[in-house]
């Protein structure tokens, strides 16, 4: 009697110890686990593994591509530096050449100018000499004339030759 009552009590007391439902729970648990296992092992896990592998591959490829691009960038920079250095050297050369050409032109122009100036100076000096010579002759003539006029005004006839000789003597002195 007591044991029967106890069994009934335990059945209704704690649902976890109600053995009449164990078969049901275990059956459905087995069904759920088997279904879940096949879903996971056949569909879900291979798919996720494939996605992860694909991503890993993409990342690796992208990293390689990035490395490639980096190397190319370094290359381009070096080429640019080289071109810059060359251009700079070229520019230096052109500057030097131009300077030399300008200096040459300048020198030649200077020389020509010097020569012209010399020629002009010589001409001028000659002209001055001519003018000076001309002036002396004129002075002599004037002196002769003045002397002759002076002698004439003093009432005497001037001897042309003596006047000339006197003037010449005076002019030399």
């Amino acid at each position: 009697m007591a044991s029967e009552a106890k069994a009934a009590e335990s059945a209704s007391g704690l649902p976890q110890l109600d053995f009449s439902t164990f078969g049901n729970q275990i059956f459905w648990l087995a069904v759920a686990l088997v279904v879940l296992y096949f879903i996971l092992s056949r569909i879900a896990l291979p798919r996720i593994a494939a996605v992860l592998a694909e991503r890993q591959g993409t990342i690796t490829n992208d990293l390689a591509a990035a490395d490639d691009l980096k190397a190319r960038a370094v290359e381009a920079e070096e080429a640019y530096k080289k071109a810059l250095a060359e251009a700079s050297a070229e520019a230096q050369k052109i500057i030097a050449e131009t300077k030399a050409a300008i200096r040459e032109d300048l020198d030649r122009a200077n020389a020509e100018a010097d020569a012209e100036i010399k020629a002009k100076t010589a001409e001028g000096e000659k002209k001055i000499a001519d003018i000076r010579a001309g002036a002396l002759d004129a002075v002599r003539d004037v002196a002769k004339d003045v002397t002759a006029e002076l002698v004439a005004s003093m009432g005497q006839k001037a001897d042309g030759r003596s006047v000339t000789a006197a003037v010449n003597a005076r002019m030399k002195g």
């Binding site: 078969g23 459905w28 759920a32 879940l36 879903i39 879900a44 798919r47 996720i48």
Partner: peptide
């Protein structure tokens, strides 16, 4: 409650399987 009766155990186990399916299969 017999061995193959549809119970709340069935319901919530099926829901757990369905949730896993939704996350791991439909989600990916």
């Amino acid at each position: 409650v017999g061995m193959f009766t549809l119970t709340n155990v069935t319901l919530w186990m099926v829901l757990a399987v369905a949730a896993t399916f939704a996350l791991l299969v439909l989600g990916t």
